[in-house]
Simulated assay, not measured.
Amino acid sequence: MTITATSLPTSEEQDGTVKYARVGSLELEAGGFLPDVVLAYETWGKLNADASNAVLVEHALTGSTHVARGASDEEGWWEQLVGPGATIDTNRFFVISINIVGGCYGSTGPSSQAPDGKPWGSRFPLVTLRDSTVAEARLADALGIRQWHAVLGGSMGGARALEWAVTFPNRVERCAVISVGAYSTAEQIAFAQAQTLAIRQDPNFNNGDYYHGPAPETGLALARRIAHITYRSALELDLRFGREAQPQEKPLTAAVLGERGRYQVESYLDHQGTKLVRRFDANSYIAITEALMSHDVRRGRGPLKEALSRATAQFFVAAVNSDRLYFPAQSHELAEALPGDVPVHIIEAPIGHDGFLTEIGQLAGQLGAAFFAEDFSRS
């Protein structure tokens, strides 16, 4: 099997530019097969001589690989942590973020061409987070990275980081798992099923083969509305919107249901749905959501403590105190089952689950002291 990747960046201007690597065929955990997998990725900084300064940052469900600014001035989603002089200082560390298999930001996914030249569509196989980790390990091989200084992520990114530490224990020195537990719970699977069903029931879905016709935008927007309610706390929604109506759209002034106006929170959810439709593929949303539903570090490995005993990394576990999607209790369960004494760091934020994005700066000092104080200046 030949694995090819574009060359490593040689100048600062190349930071934050999407690159591509072919990592070969992939036998999938659920029995499916992908014959030619491409991974899209972005990098920042330079890999040192012994490749000991490599850091993998895993994106969340609908996130991209654009963690920080680079060749363009487009803001990244973890600017509070990654960049020149930041906690993960790209003057010292080589940072990489990889688009998950099944995604729509350049990696092989349902909208990619299958061997027959047509989009995979309904034929795209079930890919688990464990499968994605295997593909990412091949990319690391192609780049000459035998061991990560650290792997970290929030939400689904945290689940991916945990899977890395358990699947390839000798390749992960440090692992940060933020705002996610050791497995997806029944409630989380229930929320996810409602989202995927919203897409599948869109009249334009066509069993996933919609690429030569109208896309299932209504279903995708509805899925995003459902998800976004879980990403924000009740307090956040109450403080921002309360029971206020949109201007000139009073909900209680219409004579019939079909003509009533909207509350401000409804308008907000409509906006979130519209934004996602503009940048994301509906089939990829299903594929990645199914991958997150599959998240269970125990699968095939025994009880939780036994499964986690495979890991040799130093762990950093954190939760958002107001999270109602991945409750802090799940982070505590994970930390207690990990080898050694692993504390749970808390992000204090009223916003809810999305605090792992908006308030990640609260962890900068603790994470920096634990993982990123090492000096690579002589490497």
Rank of each mutant, 00 (worst) to 15 (best):
A54L: 10
D15E: 13
L28P: 05
E217N: 14
D238R: 14
F94M: 03
H228Q: 09
S72P: 04
R298S: 08
A194E: 01
R146F: 02
W78F: 12
Y326V: 01
T196I: 15
R22V: 07
G24T: 03
S7Q: 07
E79G: 15
A329R: 13
R200K: 13
L239D: 14
I229C: 00
V342C: 10
Q362C: 05
L292T: 03
N206A: 15
P115C: 00
T6I: 00
V38Y: 00
E306L: 05
T65F: 07
F33C: 00
G45H: 12
F356C: 05
Q147K: 14
Q14R: 06
N91I: 05
G153L: 06
E333M: 11
D323N: 06
N99G: 07
L363F: 12
G144E: 06
N321R: 05
D341N: 13
T274H: 08
D89C: 10
I360W: 05
E217C: 04
V177R: 05
A150F: 05
V67Y: 12
R22E: 11
L143N: 01
T4Q: 01
A318F: 13
N170K: 10
F372M: 11
Q272R: 14
V320Q: 02
F94G: 04
M1G: 08
R224K: 11
A369M: 06
V317F: 10
F376R: 04
G103V: 09
V177F: 11
I360C: 10
A186V: 13
R240V: 06
D131R: 04
F168K: 00
T133K: 01
G340V: 03
G158E: 12
A161L: 08
E173Y: 01
V95E: 13
H59E: 07
E29A: 01
V151I: 15
V134T: 07
P216A: 11
V134C: 00
T218N: 09
T218R: 13
Q188I: 14
I288K: 08
Q195A: 03
R298W: 03
G16F: 08
R262H: 12
G83H: 11
R146V: 02
A254R: 02
V55I: 15
S11G: 12
Y268K: 06
N283T: 11
I96R: 03
H66W: 10
R174Q: 13
Q264A: 15
A161K: 02
D89F: 11
S11N: 12
V18D: 14
D141G: 03
T218A: 14
E13D: 14
P35F: 03
T2F: 01
